[in-house]
Design a binder for these strands. Sequence first.
DNA 1: ACTTGACTTAGAGTTAACTCGAAGTACTAC
DNA 2: GTAGTACTTCGAGTTAACTCTAAGTCAAGT
Lengths: 134, 134
Amino acid sequence: MNYSIHEVAEKFGLSAHTLRYYDKEGLLPFISRNKSGNRTFTELDLNWLAMICCLKNTGMPIKDIKQYSAWCKQGIETIDERKELLQEHRKQVVKQIEELQKNLELIDSKIATYENPELARQLDEQLERARSTV
Amino acid sequence: MNYSIHEVAEKFGLSAHTLRYYDKEGLLPFISRNKSGNRTFTELDLNWLAMICCLKNTGMPIKDIKQYSAWCKQGIETIDERKELLQEHRKQVVKQIEELQKNLELIDSKIATYENPELARQLDEQLERARSTV
DNA sequence: ACTTGACTTAGAGTTAACTCGAAGTACTAC
DNA sequence: GTAGTACTTCGAGTTAACTCTAAGTCAAGT
């Protein structure tokens, strides 16, 4: 069972434009074409694309994903490079999660002040006072 | 104790260019100037900037942060709007964290295959075979 | 045969968020 | 008073990641 570019776009919440862009940028080096020259995606290609989207959604730049794709295409002699790239990226993702959690706390504390109208009013006044005394 | 734009930039890991850009975009509506016309940041301004950076680093677009800033400047009559904006944004942040954690699992499983050379070799071969049979 | 619709390419245009450069002003040290 | 440094504004330039347009191909349906 193969999929057209629009079916895949639908499945992944991307546009066909974006998929062609990824292909052009070298992120989809495995995608085959049918006799008309149209891209056809296999189940295996969907797995591949899922990995690409995972990297993209965790903030890896297109050019790094391209490097990763190139290494995969090259074969088993690049497994060390791929492993190192993913391990480095993993650290970045863990850091992102930690920072988001820290920022979430700040957002929550701000919402808490808004839940307490008296407190919020005081904070606003404090800002106001700070302004007028500079 | 007041701070110059470069001191603040240093503190926050931003450039003075970026801070001026934020000011121009309306993200720093409270910043005062000294008699020379230079921006001076108070401790209170640093708290404000920390909140702005928090929103920015959790993916809120500049234009939304600008709206939030405008509401803060307007005063206590906009507390409901601010609260709603932050609550909505909070949901987005929680979603981001969840997605990152899900993606982290996929990255970890991929790294795991690379830790196991035999498995990695098989996966590479599988891709290869898929290619040659289309 | 001809229309329709889905695909193709190359390349131009868009958007957000900076990032920089030029020209000017103001305080500071000699 | 003038050289140097740190700031100012305005507006142009950059970058990443799309997003779209135009012109064309191909296969199916009537």
